[in-house]
Write a protein that binds this DNA or RNA. Structure first.
Lengths: 323, 323
DNA sequence: GCTCCTTGGTAACACGTGTTAGTAATACGT
DNA sequence: ACGTATTACTAACACGTGTTACCAAGGAGC
């Protein structure tokens, strides 16, 4: 394109990249910019990536499940922050067919943020390709977890909330959908740990495909003396509440329920459902800064928020047996 | 890498790409594959893309909102299908900062499927770069809509369902979240059109941020004689049902409600909520075939399903006034 | 006038691949 | 024995960019 502007290709490169040490007269500079504008010229991303060794892409590796709730919002914000730094964010949902090794044969991103666990082979492959790896909610062998948030902490907070009200027998209710196992299992394990620390009785059950069977499951829990239930999310919490009500039990008098996500369904439920809310607004900034190292991005927000998860007390929890 | 296998680079390229017209002895072929395996060699995606003019990426351009429900499932399936064809699917949520023009400066994908509307400038830019554009649920100036699904059809189906039961005054209830406008407006407009065709009275209201105000909105609807409500989705439908019940109205006797998405909340609601379900399983195949033209993908599924949306009758709808 | 330094710019290499054209060796037909 | 066809392979170019090394012109210092 430069040739059409009466100047060498090198000069164009210098102008467009604002090369620090280069000496370009203002007139030439303007001529180049003018020509680029009229021709609609943009550099080839592949050639640039080939030469520099990495592209402008930040790959967001997600677990194999539909994105919704607070995490969806985080992705949106992260994408916007990265765009300001000149980086383009792509998402890629984890998939049975192609792992990170396969994906990296389609592009060489500037960075990969792992929101799901990576195998040592995947990590090694990315490292060999010179790809910047960031573990955020996902575990990468040999890398520190950059997330202020562990799924197990969610479970721990739920149990702590119930324990604070005096409950001594608690249970965790998992969703039917096994796609969610990657999220639900750590939450349950965190809850289990916390219950053990506090000396509470703990058990867990998983919902089945059949909606009607939830009633039986909840009946089993209450008859065994459980007074507090941690649900995987507000949707599961809602179905537990419904089942308890079908059984003639009253929430929270006979059974306290804690959900996760602070979603509309929990707010509209009767009684409204105590839940765990995510405060991910600052995390998006932090992550962006972490990914765009060496880019012109506003400095990483000074302090990490002490807690990225927060309990939202509502009507579905109370001391056991209307103490 | 080839040099380490005692063979020329060209031969490596021929072997790894299974070049049709090439003559390679079996021993050499094995030697190359062996060397590639031991060295862990994979071709540079950028160099390949630079040479061939396009990469293995299928970019999925999404509207600016969190993905959930049936569309999330579709994306997952599409990604798997494309992976089988050797293509890697990335998603990119529409963003205020970077439009398609910006994105295409980070990579040159094999194809872009537009699930949101594109400006003429964006379409022209993609065309100039030789990117295969497919309009699926999104409008691209000058391109045919490949989706068997229009959002307006959802609204039309909802109104038709209510009309079939004898309702003569219907209303559309939109969600508060304006991020969803891209989806909700076409649904409302389709409903409006259908109502006009059938000679029904039609109006629409939008929920506000304040959950409590929903009661007032629903009260207004019923006092004005509305007997049937089409909700943007099951969540909105649920909140309408709750509001009606708070007002002492009975569903479906005093008010029929139709949602969208066939989600858990609608199934668990009392009464359960009549909804519109999406059958997108075949669409994923069709889309994949459309995107992977010239690739070794199983042929496009023979027949298009007649209907990709389907009404699921449940307890929240009945003839008006318990006819 | 000669050398040295700064300003403004360019020629040429390298990135790693796909592809075309070409070469050496062997087989085949007569 | 000679021309032709086939097999097996390779040299060399091109893709579009970033970057290093180099060159020309003009002024400053002596």
């Amino acid at each position: 394109m430069a040739e059409a502007a009466g100047v060498s290709r090198t000069t164009v490169s210098f102008v467009l990249n604002d090369r620090p040490g280069a000496a370009i007269s203002e007139t030439t500079r303007q001529r180049v910019l003018q020509a680029a504008a009229t021709l609609g010229y943009v550099p080839s991303p592949e050639a640039r990536a080939l030469k520099t060794g990495r592209s402008d892409i930040v790959l967001c590796l997600l677990p194999d499940w539909p994105i919704t709730g607070p995490l969806g919002v985080l992705l949106k914000k992260l994408s916007a922050h990265l765009a300001e730094a000149g980086l383009t964010m792509f998402s890629h949902q984890r998939n049975a067919v192609d792992d990170l090794t396969q994906v990296l044969q389609s592009t060489t991103p500037a960075a990969v943020v792992a929101m799901c666990d990576l195998t040592p082979a995947e990590a090694a492959f990315a490292q060999q390709r010179g790809v910047h790896l960031v573990a955020w909610m996902g575990v990468i062998p040999g890398y520190p977890d950059e997330a202020g948030l562990r799924q197990s902490d969610v479970g721990r907070l739920q149990v702590s909330a119930l324990a604070g009200l005096g409950h001594e027998r608690v249970a965790y209710v998992l969703p039917h959908d096994t796609d969610l196992a990657w999220f639900s299992d750590p939450r349950r394990d965190g809850a289990s740990e916390r219950a053990a620390e506090l000396g509470l009785a703990f058990e867990h059950v998983r919902l089945t495909d059949d909606v009607g069977s939830t009633t039986g499951l909840v009946d089993g829990l209450t008859t065994s003396g459980t007074t507090g239930v941690c649900a995987y999310n507000d949707e599961v919490a809602f179905s537990v509440v419904k089942a308890a009500q079908r059984l003639g039990r009253e929430v929270p008098r006979d059974l306290s329920v804690v959900g996760v996500d602070d979603s509309v369904i929990g707010r509209l439920s009767e009684p409204s459902i105590t839940t765990v809310s995510f405060e991910l607004a600052h995390e998006a900034e932090n992550l962006a800064a972490l990914l765009a190292v060496g880019r012109n991005l506003p400095a990483r927000s000074s302090a990490r928020p002490a807690e990225v998860i927060r309990l939202v007390p509502r009507a579905s929890t109370a001391p056991p047996g209307r103490a």
